[in-house]
Design a protein around this nucleic acid. Sequence first.
DNA 1: ACTTGGCACTCGATCCGCTGGAGTGCCAAG
DNA 2: CTTGGCACTCCAGCGGATCGAGTGCCAAGT
Lengths: 340, 340
Amino acid sequence: MVEDRKLAVLRAIVEDYVATHEPVGSKTLVERHQLGVSPATVRNDMAALEEEGLIAQPHTSAGRIPTDKGYRFFVDRLTTLKQMSAAEKRAISGFLEGAHDLDDVVQRSVRLLAQLTQQVAIVQYPTLSKSTIRHVELVALSTTRLLAVLILSTGRVEQRVVEVPVELSDELLGELRVKINTAAAGERISDAAGALGALPAQVGPRSSITYSVVVAALVEAMSDHRSDERVVVGGTANLARFGDNFDQSIKPMLEALEEHVVLLKLLGHATSSSHVTVRIGHEGPIDQLSSTSVVATGYGATDDALSVLGVVGPTRMDYPGSMAAVRAVASYVSTILDES
Amino acid sequence: MVEDRKLAVLRAIVEDYVATHEPVGSKTLVERHQLGVSPATVRNDMAALEEEGLIAQPHTSAGRIPTDKGYRFFVDRLTTLKQMSAAEKRAISGFLEGAHDLDDVVQRSVRLLAQLTQQVAIVQYPTLSKSTIRHVELVALSTTRLLAVLILSTGRVEQRVVEVPVELSDELLGELRVKINTAAAGERISDAAGALGALPAQVGPRSSITYSVVVAALVEAMSDHRSDERVVVGGTANLARFGDNFDQSIKPMLEALEEHVVLLKLLGHATSSSHVTVRIGHEGPIDQLSSTSVVATGYGATDDALSVLGVVGPTRMDYPGSMAAVRAVASYVSTILDES
DNA sequence: ACTTGGCACTCGATCCGCTGGAGTGCCAAG
DNA sequence: CTTGGCACTCCAGCGGATCGAGTGCCAAGT
C-alpha cells in the first residue's frame, strides 16, 4: 500500500534524524532501512510528505528533516509505546525505594529521569491544594514570634514565621495548638481555611485577637501560591548534547530553567497520571523555546494527579524512549507516594 | 618608578582583558589608559611581565592575556576593595528584608548574588553541626511509622521518617516527645547525640526499645552528612556569557553544578565571614574547571562562620566587583540571620 | 639607564574562487 | 506505480592570497 510506505518513510526519517542529527537523504534512507524500493521512489514519497508539511529541507540540495508537524504525526500515529526492560524496571524501583523522605523521592526521581532520558528532567512537588493536613506544629521563637510548621499528607512540610502582636504564654500556645489541630487535621488545604476561620469566634474575646492573627498567617501560608511553585530540575549537563547552536537553543533553555514559574507553564497543568502529554516546539507556551519539546505526565492517584513531572529537550529527541521513561518513573513515584 | 609602571601595565591588561575578552596589545593599551609612555616602552614592560609568568600570548603575533598567576597577583596586590554604592546597599537590604523564612533568605541571596555579579551564584545552607536544636516534633504517620521534624536555631527544618518495630500509643508518643525535647532542646547537634543516648536507660525496660529506636533514628538524621550538603545554585543562565568555547568551559561547569558534593568542594570550607577567598583557575580542586575561578566567603557570626556563599565564573572575571558583591551579600545575610 | 621611533617579521583571520559530492526534481521507459 | 538516468543546485571544504594587528629588536635620543 502506497500510503503505508509513505508513513514508513516518515518514521524512518524521524528515527534517522534523531539518531544522527543530520538531514537525511533518499539514498541513505533505503540503505539503512529495509524499505524494499529504490531511492527514486522514496524521493517521490518525500515530495508528497513535504507537500503535506511533515518534512522540510534546510536548503535546496540537502536531505530532509521532520517539521514540528512531522514529529507530531510521528508521536500521535507512529509511536508504539515502548516498554521498559525488566532490568530497567528493577533499576528504577530499586533506586526509588531507597528514599525515606519526600525530598528524597523528588530528588531521586529527577536524577533518574535525567539519566534515563539523557535530558533535562523536571519534577514538581505535590500540589498543596490537593494535600490534606496531617499536623500543625507551633514552635515559639520568642514571646512574640512563632514558627508554624505544616505537615501534609504527601509528606511535604511547609513552614512560616508568624509575628504575633501580643505576648504568648506557653499555655495559650498549647491551647492554640490543640484547637488548630482538631479543626484542621485531615482537612484539605482549601477546606481548612474555612474550619480555621471559625476558631476565633469560639474563644473568649481576650485571646480571640491572638487566634485570628495566627489563623490568618496559617491560612496565608496555605494559600501562598509561591510554595505551590516548588520545582526541581536535574540533568542540566545534558544540555551540552543539544548541539552547537548555543544562542538559539541552550541560552533560552537555561533562562527558562532559572524561572520556576516559566517551568511550570512549560510543564502544563497536572493531567491524569495515565496519560503522557507531548508538546512539540512551537506548540509550547514560550516563543524562545520554539525548538524545544516537553514530555510530561501527572503522578499520584490515577484519576486526580497530585502534580507533574517530565523532561525537556530539543524537538529532535527520542520521543518513544522519553515517553516510556516518563511514564515509568511517574508510575513508580505514584506507588511510592501511595504507600506512605 | 619603573617597577610601579610595570604593575600599572599588568592592572591595565587585566582590566582590559576582562572587559573585552580579547588579547590586548601595546598600542590599544596606551590608547585606553593614561600611561604616559609610548607603546614601545609598554612592550618592554610586557616582555618583562611575560618573563615573570604573569602574562602570556596565545600565539606569536597576538596581544597578551593574564595568566592565572597574573590574576592572582592582581587580586592580592592590585585590588582595592570596591565599596558598594548607597543605592546598591539599599537594593540589597531591601531585597533581603522581604524574606520571612530561611528558605526564602537563601533563595533570595542566590538570586541577588547572581544578579549583582552576572555570574553563577552558590549559597550553602547553614551547616547543621553549628546549629542548636530548638524543637523536635514527632508526628505519627501510622502506628509503626512516625515523622520526626527537627527545628533548628538557624531556621532550618529537617525531617526524617522513622520505622518503629513496636506499636506506638498516643501516650507513649507524647512521653517521647517531652523527654526528647527536654534532653535535646538548646543543645548543639553534636552534643545532642550524647544527651539523647542516655534516654533509653532512664525509662522502664518495656519502652526502652522504642526509645532507642527513635533516638537512634534521630541521631542518624542529625549526623547525616547528606543534609549538610544542601546547596542552592542560581544564575545558571549567566553561563551563556562565558563565551564560545563550549566544551572547555561550559560543559564541565554544568556538570559540576549538578553535583552538589563537587560544589561544596569548590566553595571550600567555611572561613571567617570577614575574609573573602579567591581561587583562581588551577588553584581549585577540580581539574576540569581549570579555567574557572571561585570567589567565596563565610556568613553568619563573624568569628565562627555558619556556612559559605560565593560566585563561580571564568578566570577572566571582574574580581573586585565580585568580591565586593560577595562580601556585601554575606554581611547582610549574616545580620538577617542574627535577628531571627 | 630609560625611552622611543623605526622596521622587518610572524601569524591568525578573512576573503575568494574552485571543486567534489550529496541530494534533488523530472522524465521517459518498464 | 516504480525505476534508472540525467541535468541541476548548492553547501562544505580546501588552498592561496591578502590584510593587519602585534611583536621583538635595534639604534638613536634624552
